[in-house]
Design a protein around this nucleic acid. Structure first.
Length: 262
DNA sequence: ATGGTTGAGTGTCAA
């Protein structure tokens, strides 16, 4: 079977229900992973999603902050949710498809403004979240698995608009990239997007604060699709739907897509 | 160096 998966930080699923419906209608991914839903699960507006055929959902939520959900046209059952770094935040949900593939959807902490855990507790929480992910994958090696989400780290020089300018900016600091790479190694995860699009500037997020985000193009690739080594070769057709960043009242993130033949 | 914008929810924090 072949299925297309998308991941999107929606920055409030209730405020942007119409944008989710637009994406589902126009792009019709089989599975859509959302982050920053900013909603309790029972207040996620599922009726419209169901009407478009997305009758399966697994989610974790909380009022006002965080929140992750997976919508699917393909039968899917919940496959766990973990509270990495014991923050008490709704940042992870996993679902399992009929073909035995597990999809992990993560919203990694942004980490605040200062890249020093001694003066910024949020930065420490971000590093701890990644360390807990690494340790979990060392304990139990994932198989036939996909990991997506807003990982809030742009690991490569061509994942940011200016590598040198961003070396001290949270999301692109060497210690974050080191933690990011340790998670990948521990789970035998492979970067699906960069396997398909190996070189060149590629972004999935542009700040709301830029006057003209499109022309300035000061973006970062914060949103990722990974696959374990046993299924990585099944992935193809990766893309970022940059257009979505220009929609009316947009999220500051654009959706990232990949297709898997499994 | 600083400030710029947005969302949730009504203070101001988080991003």
């Amino acid at each position: 079977m072949s299925f297309t998966l998308a991941t999107w930080n929606i920055n409030s699923v209730r405020l942007r229900e119409d944008l989710v419906l637009k994406l589902l209608s126009e792009q019709a991914p089989d599975v859509l992973c959302l982050q920053e839903c900013k909603s309790p699960v029972e207040k996620i507006p599922t009726a419209g999603f169901e009407a478009l055929g997305y009758t399966h959902m697994v989610a974790r939520g909380q009022k006002g902050y965080n929140g992750v959900a997976i919508l699917s046209k393909i039968p899917m059952v919940e496959a766990g949710a973990e509270d990495f770094a014991s923050l008490g935040h709704a940042r992870h949900i996993a679902g399992r498809l009929e073909n035995g593939v597990t999809i992990h959807n993560h919203y990694v902490p942004a980490g605040g403004d200062i890249a020093d855990r001694d003066v910024n507790e949020k930065f420490g929480q971000k590093l701890d979240y990644l360390t807990d992910m690494r340790d979990a994958f060392r304990t139990s090696a994932p198989k036939r698995a996909i990991l997506v989400g807003d990982l809030n780290i742009a690991p490569r020089e061509d994942d940011v608009w200016d590598h040198k300018k961003l070396l001290k900016v949270v999301s692109h600091t060497p210690i974050e990239v080191e933690h990011f790479n340790d998670v990948m190694t521990a789970g035998d995860w492979h970067d699906v997007t960069r396997a398909d699009i190996p070189a060149g500037r590629l972004y999935s997020w542009w700040s709301y604060r830029a006057k003209d985000w499109d022309a300035a193009d000061k973006g970062r690739r914060l949103d990722h699709i990974w696959a374990t080594g046993d299924i990585k070769d099944a992935a193809h057709s990766s893309r970022v739907l940059r257009d979505a960043r220009g929609w009316e009242k947009p999220s500051d993130h654009a959706p990232v897509f990949a297709t898997f033949d499994l």
